[in-house]
Amino acid sequence: MNGLYALKPWYADRLSGLRRALAARQVSPDTLTAAGVGCAAGAAAALAWLPAPLAALPVAVLLAARLAFANLDGALARDTGRTTRRGALLNELGDRTGDLLVIAGFLPLAPLWLVAAAAFASTLPSWISLAGAAAGAPRRNGGPVGKTERCLLAVVAAASGWAVPVLAVVAAGSAVTAVLRAVWVWRVLGRPGADVATGKAAATEKAEVTGEVVAAVAMATAEATETAEATATTEIPVAEPPAPAPATTPVTRRRPTPSPTLNSPPPRPDRGLPLDPGEVSGSITHTRPQSPADRGTQLRGTR
């Protein structure tokens, strides 16, 4: 049932050198996806505008390049670690757009209804494969008339001019391929353990997130362990308590009491009274004149 899709590993090996060169130049996988769409548009233009014998070479070259870019974008993303969910969506949209562009090249060569039927039928196998993958089944590719076979039939139409027969084969063969894929997906989902396979994508994401969390916890634990070991092996100096200060007896200072002088009068209890002129004030002695009687008395006392 794989058809020409079985040659994909061989074709990928032939492109390994080109893939390494693109990786060395850091080419984006999205750029390759866009280049594949451009090649499909160029092949459709050559098929529509060039006569039958002359259109074969450019259509063959451009469709071969389209298949090469369709193979390289996903492989380059895996090799360089740039696989993203947006990239996967862009890859699918690019493939479907390329399919429709190639069929659109038959518009000047066949009835409109036949072109529309072939365009609708050519996308059915891919939609069924995507629906099966979303339900948990493996992605199914290939078939009697898959993408590679449709490109080959377009080259045949460009070389022979048999646009109507080729479109009929594309429409019928794509419908048969879609039915065969649908039957295969139905059987896979009906097997025991299909419920487990249904949550494969969610489980994968959860496992990745859990792995990151476990790695972060392990790193934090290791750092904490190293810090604890370093703290345990480090001698921390213990500060000695300060020696108590010697007890001192407070010294009470008393104001010196002035010694009385010979000529100092005794203290007066009442300071409110006026001083006698004969009293002592400070260091100056005030005396009053002595009478002759007083002098006689002192002379008698000294004898």
Score class of each variant (00 low, 15 high):
residue 71 N to I: 09
residue 77 A to V: 10
residue 126 S to T: 14
residue 90 L to A: 13
residue 163 A to S: 12
residue 148 T to W: 03
residue 111 P to N: 09
residue 166 V to Q: 01
residue 160 S to D: 05
residue 107 L to E: 14
residue 145 V to M: 11
residue 75 A to K: 02
residue 137 A to T: 07
residue 74 G to S: 13
residue 75 A to F: 01
residue 132 G to T: 00
residue 170 V to W: 00
residue 116 A to R: 12
residue 100 L to S: 14
residue 142 G to F: 06
residue 83 T to P: 00
residue 65 A to G: 15
residue 74 G to D: 08
residue 124 L to A: 13
residue 81 G to L: 10
residue 91 N to I: 04
residue 99 D to L: 13
residue 109 L to R: 15
residue 132 G to Y: 00
residue 96 R to H: 06
residue 171 A to E: 05
residue 147 K to M: 10
residue 64 A to F: 00
residue 151 C to S: 13
residue 73 D to R: 03
residue 163 A to Q: 02
residue 110 A to H: 06
residue 65 A to D: 13
residue 136 G to I: 04
residue 95 D to C: 06
residue 132 G to A: 07
residue 124 L to G: 03
residue 168 A to F: 06
residue 93 L to S: 10
residue 77 A to H: 05
residue 107 L to H: 09
residue 148 T to G: 11
residue 119 A to N: 08
residue 67 L to K: 03
residue 131 A to G: 07
residue 152 L to N: 00
residue 137 A to F: 04
residue 71 N to L: 15
residue 128 I to L: 14
residue 156 V to K: 00
residue 131 A to T: 10
residue 119 A to D: 05
residue 66 R to K: 13
residue 102 V to M: 09
residue 147 K to W: 11
residue 140 R to G: 01
residue 128 I to P: 00
residue 131 A to Q: 10
residue 114 L to P: 08
residue 77 A to D: 12
residue 79 D to L: 14
residue 132 G to C: 02
residue 145 V to W: 01
residue 119 A to V: 10
residue 168 A to Q: 11
residue 100 L to R: 15
residue 114 L to M: 12
residue 151 C to Q: 14
residue 103 I to G: 04
residue 106 F to G: 10
residue 70 A to Q: 09
residue 92 E to K: 01
residue 127 W to S: 11
residue 128 I to C: 03
residue 123 T to N: 06
residue 66 R to E: 15
residue 91 N to A: 12
residue 95 D to Y: 03
residue 145 V to E: 03
residue 119 A to K: 02
residue 67 L to G: 08
residue 170 V to L: 12
residue 64 A to L: 05
residue 114 L to V: 09
residue 161 G to H: 02
residue 69 F to C: 15
residue 123 T to H: 02
residue 67 L to A: 12
residue 107 L to R: 15
residue 105 G to A: 08
residue 118 A to V: 04
residue 159 A to W: 09
residue 79 D to S: 11
residue 153 L to C: 07
